[in-house]
Amino acid sequence: MSGFRHVVMFRWAEGTTTGQQDEVAAKLRELPGVIPGIREYGVGVNAGVNPGAYDFVVVADFADRDAYLVYRDHPVHRAVVDEYITPIAAERASIQYEP
Rank of each mutant, 00 (worst) to 15 (best):
H74S: 03
A79H: 04
V24F: 02
G3N: 11
V24T: 03
N50R: 15
A26Q: 13
E23F: 02
A47T: 14
V58N: 11
M1A: 14
V70W: 01
G3S: 11
A47R: 13
D55A: 01
T16Y: 06
P99F: 12
P36A: 11
R29S: 12
S94I: 00
H6M: 07
Q20N: 10
P51K: 11
F4G: 06
H6N: 06
D55P: 05
M9C: 13
G48S: 06
N46T: 06
V70Q: 10
I35V: 15
V80Y: 05
R65P: 00
G33W: 03
Y54V: 03
W12I: 05
P32E: 08
G52S: 06
I88F: 05
T86E: 13
G3W: 12
H77Q: 06
Y84M: 00
Y84W: 11
G37N: 09
P75H: 02
M1G: 15
T18G: 12
A90S: 11
G3V: 10
T18S: 12
T16E: 09
R78Q: 14
R92S: 04
D55T: 05
V59D: 12
D55G: 03
R11N: 15
V34S: 05
V34M: 12
A26L: 09
E30F: 00
Y41K: 06
D82P: 00
Q20F: 07
G48E: 09
H74N: 05
R29C: 09
R39F: 02
D61S: 11
D64V: 00
V59G: 07
V57Y: 09
I85S: 04
D64L: 04
S94Q: 12
T16K: 06
P75V: 04
I88H: 04
H77P: 02
N50P: 03
A25M: 10
D55F: 04
A13S: 15
W12H: 07
W12V: 07
H77Y: 01
E14V: 10
S94F: 11
I95A: 15
F10G: 06
A53L: 09
P87F: 04
F56Y: 14
A93C: 07
I95P: 01
V57T: 13
P87V: 07
G15A: 08
A47I: 11
A13G: 12
F56M: 04
A63H: 09
A60W: 06
L31D: 00
F10R: 03
K27D: 00
T18A: 14
E98D: 13
W12T: 07
V34L: 15
Y54C: 09
H74E: 02
G42H: 15
Y84Q: 03
